[in-house]
Design a protein around this nucleic acid. Structure first.
Lengths: 249, 249
DNA sequence: CTTCCGAATATGTCTGGACATATGGGGGTC
DNA sequence: GACCCCCATATGTCCAGACATATTCGGAAG
C-alpha cells in the first residue's frame, strides 16, 4: 500500500516520533535494562511504518547509547534514557570535557591575523579574521597556550572576552551567533623550542594539542581555536555515567 | 533492474567502500576543505549505486566530522588536513563500548596478571584479574599499545576478544555485564625507550596516553585499560551538533 | 538599486521489496 | 552431560521510486 499519509506540517518526522515513543517506553519501565525491544518487523506492524523507518528510529536510539543491536539477538536495552551526563546538554559546547578547574584566558595579543599565522595553517584569508593569542591558566599557573582565529564580522572586543567564560560564549552573547556544530581534535605534540620557552616547559617534552572548529547554522567556520597543554600540567578527565542522578535521597 | 551484484565475501559493504573512496579523495586533495562533494544523484551515477547507499556513505563521513550537509547547498568538506593519523570518535558512552574505530586488537599476551604489572599500579590483587597486552592497529599498521586488566569472573576467551571490536563490547556480549560508569583520562606522554621500541617510534617523541576504568552496576571495577598512541598515528576527534528543540510529537 | 518572490535543486523522509549474514539455540551425537 | 552442527531468525545491505522541505539564486517588481 503506497497510500501517502501526509504528515501534518510542524510535526516531527515519523522515525523521530517512533524513537520518542520507544525512549518513553524505556523510561517508564515498559522495557527495562536487559530487555529486548520489539524487532524491526514487529515495529512495522505496530506503528504501520516501513522497515526502513523503523530502522531509522532504532538508529537514533543506538546513537544515543540506549540500546545495543546484534544480529539474530535483537535490540537490547542497555541504559535508561534521561538527562544522562554524557548526552550533550547543548548549553555551550565549550565545557563538554570538563576542564580541570576553570582555566581563565589571559590575552597576549588580539588584532589582525598575520599572514603566516594560524590563517595559513588553516588555509584561510587573513584579512577576514582576527587572531588572538593568550595563556590559559589558573591563578599564577599557566596550563596552556592558546591561539585562535575569529571571523571579523563576529569578533568581540577584548574586554568582552575577558569577562566571558569562553570566547564562543562571548560571541554568542554579543552577536547571537551560536555554534551549530563543533569539531574537536585531541592529539599529542612534541614541544618545539619556541613553545617550550613560552610555556616554561622542557624542550622536546610531550604536550596535549587540542583544536576546535566552530561553525554557524550555515556550516560556515567562524571560530577556530588551538591550545597546547604541557603533559605534566593538564589532562582531560571525563566521567561517563549511565546512572541518573538520584533525586530522592 | 534488480540485478544482484553479489559482493564477494570478505569485502567491505558497498557504502563503506564509497565512504573510503571519498575519504581518500578528501585526503589527497581532490576535494579541498570548502569544496562541495558530488551530490547524491551524481554519486549514484558515478559508482552505480542506489541513492540510499550513497546516503549511507555520506552519513559515515558526516558522523566522522569530515563533511557538513545542508539542503540545497550540498555536501561541503570541513575536514582539516591530516589523513595519515587514525581518528577515534569520542562522542559519548557508546563510543567507548562499541566501535573502537576500526583498529583491531592484536593480542600479545593474555593470562594471569603478574604481580608487578598493571595490578600493582592500580593497587589490585593480581589473583583476581587477568592481564592482556596487545597492539591496536589496522592491517600492518600499529596505532597503539594496550595493556588491560579484566576481572576474572568476566574474562572472555582470547577468540571472543579477537573477533570483537572492543573488549568492553565482548564482555557485554558474553557476560551481560554492562558498563554503568566509565572514567577516562587522556594525557600526553613522552615515549620511554622501551615503549618507543615496541611501537617503532622515535624515543622521546610524544604520545597520547588513555586510561579507562569500567565499572558495573554495583560500582565495582571490572575492566581497566591503558593505551599509548604515538602522536603521529592517532587522534581523538569529536563532532558535536546542536539539534533543534525536539518536537517529536 | 534594493526587495521580494517563485522556480530550481539537493537533501530529507518514507514506502516496498529482496537477498546477505551472523548467531542463538535446538537437536542430535558421542 | 558435553560437544558439534544446522537452521530459523533478526539485523545488515542494497535496490528502485515518490513526495516533502529547505535554501539558493535569479528575475520581477518597486
Amino acid at each position: 500500500m503506497n497510500t501517502l499519509k501526509r504528515r501534518p506540517v510542524g510535526t516531527a518526522p515519523r522515525y523521530r516520533q517512533i524513537a520518542q515513543i520507544l525512549r518513553a517506553a524505556i523510561g517508564n519501565g515498559t522495557y527495562k535494562v536487559g530487555d529486548l525491544l520489539p524487532g524491526e518487523i514487529e515495529l512495522c506492524a505496530l506503528y504501520d511504518i516501513s522497515r526502513h523507518t523503523a530502522r531509522d528510529a532504532l538508529r537514533l536510539l543506538t546513537d544515543e547509547g540506549l540500546v545495543v543491536r546484534r544480529r539474530r539477538a535483537g535490540t537490547m536495552v542497555t541504559a535508561p534514557p534521561g538527562p544522562a551526563t554524557f548526552v550533550q546538554p547543548l548549553g555551550g559546547f565549550e565545557d563538554l570535557l570538563q576542564y580541570a578547574g576553570e582555566a581563565r584566558l589571559r590575552i597576549i595579543y588580539y588584532g589582525p591575523a598575520p599572514a603566516d599565522g594560524l590563517a595559513q595553517t588553516l588555509d584561510l584569508l587573513p584579512d577576514d579574521w582576527r587572531e588572538l593569542r593568550g595563556y590559559r591558566g589558573k591563578g599564577a599557573q599557566t596550563v596552556g597556550l592558546t591561539r585562535m582565529l575569529i571571523r571579523k564580522d563576529c569578533a568581540p572586543t577584548g574586554s568582552d572576552i575577558d569577562g566571558a567564560s569562553s570566547v564562543a560564549g562571548a560571541i554568542e552573547a554579543r552577536f547571537g551567533v551560536v555554534a551549530s556544530r563543533v569539531d574537536q581534535r585531541i592529539s599529542a605534540l612534541t614541544l618545539s623550542s619556541l613553545l617550550a620557552q613560552l610555556l616554561g616547559a622542557p624542550e622536546g617534552s610531550a604536550a596535549l594539542h587540542t583544536q576546535r572548529q566552530y561553525r554557524d547554522a550555515t556550516g560556515r567556520l567562524y571560530l577556530a581555536t588551538e591550545t597546547v597543554h604541557p603533559a605534566d600540567r593538564f589532562a582531560y578527565v571525563t566521567s561517563y555515567t549511565r546512572e541518573r542522578p538520584d533525586i530522592d535521597r
